[in-house]
């Protein structure tokens, strides 16, 4: 069974407003594949950021590689700006355990030494397993461990969250 909840488009507006005050033309934005890259792409456009948008796929940095193996389609990461001394705003769709963010930070540091790394997420669903928090959030909802949430994107680029209750794997 799936239900639509909460309204991702509203969260996007909140996130955009929260981020707008904090970015300058020197801020570099990096989206995490797949959902985070979608959010970052739209934010990057509406905020009119100068530096090229970066995208990363954290598959090569995940801490559960030994259990899960390599996902068959890993997107190539692309960071086309100088990372050293840069302010970086990392964007993801959902913040949960914090493990993805840890992996993403590790990858960013392999491109150079940023001056500052910030995190913006559409939704914070709680359930952290690491001491990681977001600087900017669209909204917070506490979900049970068995609930899985995924961001979807329609043909006209509108976001929607889909929640599925399932057996925890």
């Amino acid at each position: 069974m799936s239900k639509a909840f909460p309204k991702a488009e509203d969260l996007f507006l909140c996130l955009k407003d929260a981020v707008r005050e904090q970015v300058s033309d020197q801020t570099a934005m990096v989206g995490i594949h797949t959902g985070g890259a979608w959010v970052a792409k739209r934010l990057h456009k509406v905020l009119g950021l100068n530096l090229p948008l970066g995208e990363i796929d954290v598959s090569f940095y995940r801490d559960d590689f030994a259990q899960r193996g390599l996902k068959s389609r890993v997107q190539p990461s692309s960071i086309e700006f100088e990372v050293n001394d840069r302010e970086i705003l990392l964007i993801d769709d959902v913040l949960y355990s914090g493990r993805t963010i840890r992996a993403a930070m590790n990858e960013i540091f392999d491109h150079g030494r940023p001056k500052k790394v910030m995190l913006g997420v559409l939704l914070d669903r709680g359930g952290r397993q690491l001491p990681i928090d977001a600087n900017f959030v669209g909204g917070k909802v506490y979900l049970k461990e068995v609930e899985r949430i995924a961001l979807t994107k329609s043909d006209d680029e509108l976001f929607e969250f889909v929640i599925r209750s399932g057996v925890e794997t």
């Binding site: 090569f60 190539p76 491109h111």
Partner: peptide, 10 residues
């Protein structure tokens, strides 16, 4: 997807 790795700092 491994190709960009060879062009980075690390």
């Amino acid at each position: 997807s491994f190709m960009p790795v060879t062009k980075r700092d690390v």
